[in-house]
Design a protein around this nucleic acid. Structure first.
Length: 562
RNA sequence: UGGGGUGUCGUCAAGCGGUAAGACACAGGUCUUUGGAACCUGGACUCGGAGGUUCGAAUCCUCCCACCCCAGCCA
């Protein structure tokens, strides 16, 4: 048995936290939060953050809140909130009664803004968006102060109150922090704190027509929730001085420590909300839960287990290097998990009729097949064996190539958990020349046992009984893109979509025991891979299986084809 | 040309002045009624580059180079 968790994970964030605990900063407490904006579905990149935040909280006996960072009414919906809740829960984390919304803090945030105005640290600016941009300066030149920068406190208070009251059109005024237009850090050049947006909010409706910006809402939400460690991604590093400035100016009681880490990138896919929306809206995939999508909804439908994803998030580590994780690691984590828990069954993707000439007509034997060869505790099932079977087309070759350990003229192979069979003849379709049927003889003395004479056979082949097997549809998934870094290419990322990312085979045959397979259940089809009964499209009489991941296959390396 | 970050095996990632962990991938092998799983073996003569400090540097200092982020009334 492999020890997957020899020691709790350690990384620079946990080092900082341990130092804080040691020095009694935050009274030794640890409180984190996962703060998604409900304007899209969660993906594997979010999973890294979820696992980090909830994982740290659990490790140090602290808490982790789930907070909807809903400060921009355009694009945020209840549907996204629901999907986020569903996905975080599915991933295996529990925020208990600590589900919060930035929109619940609007009144408090407003009061904080008023306070900032009163202390002369914020002002209402009536420049247009373009004018503000022009005044902001460039990377190398300082900005210009707004002509409205020195309005009186009274005027600012009055204007801000009227902004809230809905007296102005969108864009007429904004509230700005009064910091430093000459700062080399552009974030500090009098950042906008509030904007007027007469857009209905999915939770508070038309109650507000001014909405706080991220920088204002986030640090204060953290403070309100008494967060100790506000963990976010690298692109917010420039914003940390503003985060601290606001909390310092407002003299809040709780001043969390923001810590930034590198977001996850995965090879052969994209993890940007915008790109994923493009894939969905452009019809390149079948929705957010398309099994090819790196969304948690898609991965769940594909059959990935929460445990595999958690393990993956742990193994990739946490650091500040921009990096692209090899998809092979995710595949590995999924196989590692499924290898242990998935029951083995037999299914034939592309059936080839196989007749056992010397097997009695009409005879049916129930062959005992273990659910897991290495784990007898998982039990077994009986699978019917009869004269006419299906084997995989790939498992017979008229002219076997070198190192091909399967059936061919003159050869013997083992039928998994059944008999050794010997090639007798084949029947070809007269018109197409394709092999329509293979005939063999079986050795009755080899039923799930070694031959008395000790002879070796070519290999082992999976099969199903023609009469007893069930028709099934199988969807074979491969990587969505055929280049490692679709967004790093010169051309548009859509050009690199893998046309073979989905192959549907509707003529598969699976063993009888799958008759009552429940949607969402996962199996290993021996020699092929791991498959999951589709949550949406599978029905009792017509099972649909999604291929989660193939088994590692050393034959593809030997043969050089695929 | 401003500021903030980052550079250790193909991909991640430990390392915190004492002489390069581990994982995935890869290669070879053992075993095998899954060409699966498991198990063994192999690999950075070197840490972006160049100098310097030191008995000793991936770790400290200096300079240089590359890449990422910032000029939304997005987050």
């Amino acid at each position: 048995m492999l020890q997957t968790h020899p020691s709790p994970p350690s990384d620079f964030i946990r080092e900082i936290i341990e130092e804080h605990i040691k020095t009694n900063r935050f009274q030794g407490l640890v409180a984190t939060r996962f703060p998604p904006e409900p304007n899209g579905y969660l993906h594997i990149g979010h999973a890294k953050s979820v696992c980090l935040n909830f994982g740290i909280a659990a490790q140090y006996g602290g808490t982790c809140n789930l907070r909807m960072d809903d400060t921009d009414p355009s694009g945020e919906t209840r549907e996204y909130v629901d999907s986020i809740i569903r996905d975080v829960k599915w991933l295996g984390f529990d925020w208990q009664n600590r589900l919060f919304y930035a929109s619940d803090y609007y009144e408090q945030l407003y009061q904080f803004a008023v306070h900032l105005i009163e202390t002369g640290k914020a002002y209402v600016c009536s420049l247009s968006a373009e004018e503000i941009r022009e005044h902001r300066g460039t990377l190398t030149e300082p900005g210009q102060e707004s002509p409205y920068r020195n309005r009186s406190v009274e005027e600012n208070l009055d204007l801000f109150k009227r902004m809230r009251a809905g007296e102005f059109e969108d864009g007429a005024h904004v509230l700005r922090a009064r910091i430093d237009m000459g700062s080399p850090n552009i974030t500090l050049r009098d950042p906008v704190l509030y904007r007027i947006k007469r857009t209905p909010h999915y939770r508070v409706g038309m109650k507000w027509c001014i909405y706080p910006m991220y920088d204002f809402a986030h640090c204060l939400s953290d403070s309100i929730e008494k967060i100790t460690h506000s963990i976010c991604t690298l692109e917010f590093e420039n914003n940390r001085p503003l985060y601290d400035w606001l909390l310092d100016e407002l003299k809040v009681e709780y001043h969390p420590q923001q810590i930034e880490f590198a977001r996850l990138n995965l090879s052969y896919t994209v993890l940007s909300k915008r790109r994923l929306i493009e894939l969905v809206e452009g019809g390149y995939v079948n929705g957010w839960d398309d099994p090819r999508m790196p969304t948690l909804a898609g991965m769940r439908r594909r059959g990935y287990t929460p445990g595999a994803i958690q393990n993956f998030c742990e193994r990739i580590g946490v650091a500040k290097n921009d990096s692209i994780i090899d998809m092979a690691l995710l595949d590995h984590c999924v196989r590692e998990d499924l290898n242990e828990r998935a029951k083995r069954v037999m299914g034939v993707l592309r059936p080839l009729r196989l007749v056992i000439d010397n097997y009695p007509e009409g005879k049916v034997e129930a062959l005992e097949c273990p659910h897991h060869p290495q784990n007898p505790g998982m039990g077994s099932r009986e699978t019917p064996f009869s004269k006419i079977l299906y084997i995989e087309q790939d498992d017979f070759h008229e002219n076997p190539p070198k190192k091909y350990n399967r059936l061919g003229p003159g050869r013997e192979v083992r039928l998994r958990y059944g008999y050794i069979i010997k090639y007798a003849s084949m029947v070809k379709d007269e018109r197409t020349g394709e092999i329509a049927e293979v005939h063999c003889t079986y050795d009755p003395k080899t039923k799930n046992s070694s031959p008395p004479d000790g002879r070796k056979v070519e290999g082992v082949v999976h099969w199903v009984s023609a009469e007893h097997s069930l028709p099934a549809e199988v969807r074979l998934y491969e990587r969505l893109f055929n280049v490692p870094n679709p967004l790093g290419e010169k051309e548009d990322f859509l050009k690199f979509l893998n046309p073979k990312s989905l192959e549907t085979i509707s003529t598969c045959r699976v063993e009888t025991s799958l008759k009552d397979a429940t949607p969402g259940s996962r199996y290993q089809f021996e020699r092929l891979g791991y498959f999951c009964v589709d949550l949406k499209d599978s029905s009792p009489g017509r099972p649909v299986f999604n291929r989660i991941v193939t088994l590692r296959d050393s034959w593809v390396k030997v043969s050089g084809v695929k």
